[in-house]
Amino acid sequence: MSKLRIALTKGRVEKDIVKLLSRAGLDMTPLIEKGRKLIIQAGDYEFVLAKAPDVITYVEHGVCDAGIVGKDTIMENGGSFYEVLDFKTGVCSFCVAGLPDTQLYSDYRQIKIASKYPNVAKRYFNERNLDVDIIKIEGSVELAPLLELSDAIVDIVETGSTLKENGLVVLERMYDISARLIVNTVSMKLKKDEVTELTSLVKTAL
C-alpha cells in the first residue's frame, strides 16, 4: 500500500520535481523510465501523471491525496484544498504585456485583454476597479495585440524572449508563480503523518 497518491503535472513541472525529489533521496527512476504509463509507483508514493487543471480536480475529489501543480493553474481554476508548500521551481510570473508604446489607462474606451487565463486577468483588473473585456485565446497569445485584437495580453512570462522576438514588452508584473504542493482537505487530517513526512522530505531538498 502506498503512503500517498500524488497527482503530478506532466511536462516541465514533472521534470523539475523528479530532480528535486531525487535530490531529497527518493528513488525516482520508475518515473524517469515510465514509458507511457500514467500511474507509477516510486518508493512509498504512487504518482499519477495528469494535465495541470486535472491535478486540481483529482485532489479536490479526493481520488488523489496530494497534487503538484503550478500556482498559475491554482489561480486560474481555484478550488478547495490545502496549499502547503512552495517548491520554488518553475519560477516565473503573470504579466500584462503589449506593444512598447501601449497606454492602457489613458483613454475612456474599454480595455481589451487577450489571455489563456481569463479568470486571473479578470481578477487582476477587478482588484483595480477596472472593467475590462477579456478575450479567451488558446495559445500564442502574443498574436492578439500584434493583430490589434486586443490592447494587451495577460500571460506567464519566464525569460521574456518570446515577447521580445515578437516586439512586445512587459507592461506590468502581476503575480509570482511557482510549483506548489496541494493536499486534499480530508487526506490532510486522516493522513497527517504521511503528509508531514512528505513535506519534511521535500524541505531537505529546497
Binding site: E60, G62, V63, N184, T185, V186, S187, K189, L190
Partner: peptide
C-alpha cells in the same frame, strides 16, 4: 466530520 475513503467533509 470526516469519513475514511471520502474526499469531502
Amino acid at each position: 466530520g470526516y469519513l475514511k475513503g471520502l474526499g469531502d467533509v
